[in-house]
C-alpha cells in the first residue's frame, strides 16, 4: 500500500507495507544511508531520527506509526547551524573514530542540549544513555559536549 509522510521537509509517498521498519524505508526506499542499523533492538542509538520533533529509534518504529508524520534524518539535520557546531566540537575533541555511532550520537547531543542547555554530568550521561560507542570510551564525546556548552550551543 501507499504510505504518505513528510521526510526531511518534503512530502513523500512510498509503496510498502505497514509493518516495514522506518529504518529500512529510509535506507532502502529513499537511499538515505546516514541512519545506521547497529543492534536492531533499541540499545545502540545508531538509527536515531526525529519523528515530529521526538527522537526515536527507527529500528523499532514500523512505518504504520509514521503515516502523516514528519521524519528528519541526519541528512537534513546536517544542513542546520546546530549540526555545524556539533561537528566542529566533535572534530576538536576527537569524538569520532570509526564513525558508525556518530549520526545517532550527533542527534542525541542536539536533543540533550535542547532539553538541558546547561546539563550536569549526570544529565549528559542520561541524555546519551541510549547511544553506544565502542571506540571512544565516551570521554571525547563528553568533551565535545562540554565544548558546546561553553560555546553556548543554543545562542544563535
Amino acid at each position: 500500500m501507499k504510505i504518505k509522510f513528510e521526510l526531511n521537509h518534503e512530502f513523500v509517498e512510498v509503496e510498502t507495507t505497514l509493518s516495514k521498519r522506518l529504518l529500512d524505508v529510509i535506507r532502502e526506499d529513499f537511499d538515505l544511508i546516514g541512519t545506521k542499523e547497529g543492534c536492531a533492538e533499541g540499545e545502540c542509538g545508531a538509527c536515531l531520527v526525529y519523528v515530529d520533533d521526538l527522537l526515536v529509534n527507527s529500528c523499532l518504529v514500523p512505518i504504520a506509526n509514521v503515516v502523516d508524520k514528519h521524519v528528519v534524518t541526519i541528512e537534513a539535520f546536517s544542513k542546520t547551524d546546530g549540526y555545524q557546531k556539533i561537528e566542529d566540537a566533535f572534530v576538536k575533541a576527537g569524538a569520532v573514530q570509526c564513525g558508525y555511532c556518530t549520526p545517532g550520537m550527533v542527534m542525541a547531543v542536539h536533543e540533550l542540549l535542547k532539553q538541558y542547555p546547561n546539563p550536569t554530568v549526570e544529565e549528559v550521561k542520561e541524555g546519551l544513555s541510549g547511544n553506544l560507542c565502542r571506540c571512544t570510551g565516551y570521554q571525547s564525546i563528553f568533551e565535545a559536549v562540554n565544548l558546546l556548552i561553553e560555546g553556548g550551543y543554543l545562542d544563535v
Binding site: 533499541g42 542509538g45 536515531l48 521526538l54 527522537l55 526515536v56 529509534n57 523499532l60 518504529v61 542525541a108 536533543e111 542520561e126 541524555g127 544513555s129 541510549g130 547511544n131
Partner: peptide
C-alpha cells in the same frame, strides 16, 4: 526506564 528515545515511543 530505558533511554530517552525509547521513552518517547
Amino acid at each position: 526506564m530505558s533511554s530517552p528515545a525509547i521513552r518517547n515511543v
